[in-house]
Amino acid sequence: MNFFESFQTAVEGIWANKMRSSLTMLGIIIGITSVIAVTTLGEGGQRAINEEMEKFGRNNFNVFINWDTKEEHSNDDLTVEDAEVLAKISPAIEYIVPYNPGTVEMKGPKKEERVNLVATTADYFPMLKTTTKLSKGRFFNHTDDKEQRAVVVLEEALGTKLFGQVNPIGQRVRMGNNSLVVIGTYTEEKFKFDMGAESYGAFVPIRYSQSLQEEPYVQMLMGTAVDKASIEPAMQQAKQYLSRKHQKKDHYMARSMQESVNQFNQVTGTLTIIFSVIAGISLVVGGVGVMNIMLVSVTERTREIGIRKALGARRSDILIQFLIESVIVCLIGGLIGVLSGLGIASLIAYFANLPPMLSWNSVIIAFAFSSAIGIFFGLYPANKAAKLDPIEALRYE
């Protein structure tokens, strides 16, 4: 019996027991579906977030105080002047600015809103050129900052909330007991995976913000390296300058966006592997189901095997026939599992606002697993069928 005849016989055996074959496939389908869905979402989500990080500035880095150090801390550990000097002396740094984020209540003629307020310098806006665009007016300049002018740049949606249909440029907003003039509005591309509530932003000059504080401080420095190769030198130069100027060793830390991305990839990669292993357990269960059904099939077809052997079928012919039958069941189940897994992953991606994803690696692995399960768990029943004595098999009732 050649391979084609063995294949044809195996298909006929499966077709003759459609319900049993379908139930046998079910475990494989569930297992492959789980593995495909988990790995596709893991790889696709990881790729999508990496693209978002790239868009928001892969060359960015932050410099901040190491609060775990035993050295004494003070409000002048970081200053506006530190950023200005670093921008001039470091060839690896394109921009570096002081960065003080916070939340305030901002009131306009129409409404009062809670606002994410950033106090910084004029160089901050050029750092955001890929994600933030001026819609009206202007961003504050170095003169506004040095003269501590009470000016603010509002997110366009915030301007609409506070002023309605009135052009906010030149209008005033209240921030506590202080009145600020709106000099510009901007639109900002939001981070796609920000699942938080709707929020609005605004910018003010940092020296004006510090003039309102009893003890002025800078929370961190935010910088951009000239290119990816310059990120590490830029961070090292920033830490060395600050340590030398403030006479404090190991008092400053720096973290790049690339480090955050790498850390995220490591976590998501580990979680994907863990979930895939858990989902893969169902594949093993499905394989056991294949072996059980194939053993039942051998028992039911004992007389048929005896007749085949009596007519000249060799042991290898019987072995190959049952192995092919097992592999076909697993491959069909694997194909259905791949399609359903991709369908589920696409559905989740649609509702989670992820881009379309297809992980060819997981598809190839799924089919390899299906074939391996068919061979591994089908080998024992096939071998048992091949070893049957034809005389005993013909006597079997």
Rank of each mutant, 00 (worst) to 15 (best):
L128Y: 06
S34P: 02
G223Y: 00
S297K: 01
E84W: 08
R308E: 09
K129H: 11
F140C: 13
I365G: 09
A352F: 14
Y95D: 07
K107N: 06
K161E: 14
T187Q: 13
A345D: 12
A202S: 12
L323C: 03
V290Q: 06
P233E: 00
R172W: 03
S297G: 05
K129I: 12
E188K: 13
E94S: 12
G223F: 00
R114I: 11
T302F: 01
I169D: 00
F64S: 00
K309R: 14
F56R: 11
L319E: 13
I273V: 11
Y350I: 05
M291Q: 06
K107E: 14
M235I: 07
Q210G: 03
S326D: 10
K248L: 13
N353E: 12
F7N: 11
A345T: 11
G159S: 03
S370Q: 09
V97Q: 01
V118Q: 08
A385S: 10
V182R: 02
I328Y: 04
Q266P: 01
G102I: 01
D77P: 13
A254G: 06
E113S: 13
N262K: 08
V267G: 06
V151S: 01
Y200H: 02
E12K: 15
I49S: 05
G102P: 00
P356A: 07
I32T: 10
V104H: 12
